[in-house]
Amino acid sequence: MKTHFTYFLGNTTEIMFSGWPGQSLESYMLALVSVFLLSLVVEWLSHTKLIDGSTADHYVSDGLKQTLMYAIRVGLAYLVMLAVMSFNVGVLLAAISGYSVGFLIFGSRVFMRSKKIVPNMDQTDDLTPINCC
């Protein structure tokens, strides 16, 4: 398998693991869907509320759960980064699309349940969103 150092189009690529996704178009499409879903899950973890912090008695266990969620989010984000490092344009577009759709669903105001517009006044997410700027 040839290693690319520039972005290219095509379904003959290796993503994250040797021999994956293989040479067929079907396995390449499955790999693109996998990258899309991985990046969508990263956005979901960035904007979700899974820990019930209503009582102050469980702050240690809540902190450990929050740390575990953070570790999972970072691990999945690194997997997406490794996939993008295959320099395949389809993989790059799948990752960007997954992050974008995930933000649209979980982070934008399109599906907000409340009318709060001031950010970070009442943090309702378990983890702070990944900020690039």
Rank of each mutant, 00 (worst) to 15 (best):
M1T: 06
K2R: 01
H4M: 02
F5Y: 08
F5V: 00
T6P: 00
F8D: 01
F8A: 02
G10I: 01
N11A: 07
T12I: 06
T13E: 00
E14S: 02
F17Q: 02
G19E: 03
G19I: 08
W20N: 09
P21R: 05
Q23L: 08
E26Y: 11
S27D: 10
Y28S: 11
Y28G: 07
M29P: 00
L30A: 13
L30C: 08
L30S: 12
A31W: 04
A31P: 07
L32T: 08
L32C: 14
V33Q: 12
V35E: 10
V35K: 01
V35M: 06
S39A: 15
E43A: 12
E43Y: 04
L45A: 08
L45T: 13
S46F: 03
H47L: 02
T48G: 07
L50P: 07
D52Y: 05
D52K: 11
G53A: 04
G53H: 05
G53F: 01
S54V: 02
D57N: 12
G63H: 06
Q66A: 15
T67D: 05
M69E: 07
A71C: 15
I72E: 02
G75C: 13
L76V: 15
A77V: 03
Y78D: 10
Y78K: 09
L79Y: 04
L79R: 15
L79N: 09
V80I: 11
L82E: 15
V84K: 07
M85T: 03
N88P: 09
V91A: 03
L92A: 13
L93M: 15
A94R: 09
A95S: 11
I96Y: 12
S97F: 13
G98Y: 03
F103Q: 05
F103E: 09
F111Q: 03
F111W: 06
T124P: 00
T124G: 14
T124K: 15
D125S: 14
D125W: 01
L127M: 10
I130G: 02
C132E: 14
C132T: 08
C132F: 15
